Computed example of a mutant assay.
Amino acid sequence: MVNLFISYCQKDGIYADDIELYFKDKDIVLHRDIRDISSWKSIREYMQSIRDMDYAVLIITDNYLKSFNCMYEVLEVMKERNYQDKIFPVVVEKKIFNTSGRIQYITYWQEEFKKLKEEMLKIKDVINAGSIIDDLKRTQNITLNIDEFLGKVSDMNNPNISDISVSIKNKLIEQGILKEEQAKKSIEKGDDDIFSKLDIPKMVLNSQPTDLEKNKFMANNFSRINCILGKLCKQLEKENQNFQVEIEEIDSRTTTYEFYKSGSQVRALKLSLGNSFGGRENNIGISCERYSMGNNNSFNGIFSVKVEDGQLVLYSMFSMSGQKTMSTDDVAKEIWISFIQPYI
């Protein structure tokens, strides 16, 4: 059995959910904080256990790179020699591939160290600040090591986020760790190469993402965006008793949201996945108010797929923030701030 540690920020749990669901029936033991840390157990001891695992999946988002706990887990991994051989980075935050992007995180932790140090100096007797001194040292270690870590990760040939689970499985098969999966793959493939037997030239696959990969990428992001919006709606209802949100999944490609304040509808929204312009690639469309119901194809916002540095990314073709590359979280935030929040 392979022990796989998922290191992530809980704000980005949807990525960890996808990986866990994929490996549910395979010979892999997945370790996640939400399941492995029982009540009143040490969080730090759990984070240190990452060194005992066969591999670690690091879901690298902006939240992750600014989280003390997540970066503490990174420091633990970095204690291992050739640690890059036992990590599977899931790079959501693409700006780490640029020098200026990496500098932003270095300066962020420099500022965090400076602020913590200034706060600690307010304690008159330093002998009373034992655990705080430890945190200060760890923060300094993050500051000293984050450049090396980001440099290692950005130099790796990281797969598309939508393909990460398959890529992890294939890597484990390649190393002979998932033996049952390897045998299954061999049986499915068969012993005979029928193409060679019939002297049929094999297809040379295009290195660029295919239409199928792009549409799967959009379908996955459509699901994730609806998941995030659903959580936002639940929190809205929890924190404001006079708000109710009716969410209806019409089908796998259409979800509607109706917002009620004291029983009166104040906003309606429809998210749809489809070929908005009659092309081969799927888009995510946003329709508001009267467009939210029925089959009207008028849109208030459209997000599409784009290939950037060999990676599939979301791209706002038509939205309040203009045309630009966005993450899944960015799109969900854009929808909430631009199309929902002003009306509730």
Rank of each mutant, 00 (worst) to 15 (best):
G294W: 07
F299C: 04
F318S: 09
N297C: 07
E308C: 06
L314A: 06
G285F: 00
N297F: 07
L312Y: 03
G310C: 05
F318C: 05
Y291F: 13
V305M: 09
V305H: 02
N296P: 01
G310Y: 06
I286F: 03
E308K: 06
F303I: 13
Y291G: 05
I286N: 00
S298I: 13
S292L: 04
G310K: 04
G310V: 06
M317I: 13
G285S: 10
N297S: 14
D309C: 08
F318W: 10
E308W: 09
I302N: 01
N297V: 11
D309Y: 10
F318L: 10
K306A: 09
N297G: 07
E289D: 15
F299E: 04
G310N: 05
R290A: 11
L312G: 01
L314K: 03
S292A: 14
V307L: 08
I284S: 00
N295W: 09
V305D: 04
S298L: 12
M317D: 15
V305R: 00
Y315P: 03
S287Q: 06
S287D: 06
I286W: 00
M293T: 11
L314I: 13
E289N: 11
I286C: 05
S304N: 12
S287W: 00
G301I: 01
F299W: 15
N297A: 12
S287T: 04
I302H: 02
G301N: 06
Y315I: 10
E289V: 04
I286H: 00
F303L: 05
M317V: 12
Y315N: 13
C288S: 08
I284E: 00
D309H: 11
E308R: 05
N296H: 12
M293E: 13
G294K: 07
L312S: 02
F318G: 01
R290G: 06
S292C: 10
N300W: 02
G285M: 03
V307T: 14
M317Q: 13
S316V: 11
V307Y: 02
V307E: 13
Q311W: 08
G285H: 00
N297M: 12
I302Y: 02
E289R: 05
S287N: 04
K306R: 13
Y291P: 00
V305T: 15
S292N: 09
F299H: 09
S316A: 15
I302T: 05
D309P: 02
K306S: 11
G310I: 05
F318H: 10
N300L: 03
N297Y: 10
E308N: 09
G285A: 08
V305Q: 10
R290E: 14
F299Q: 06
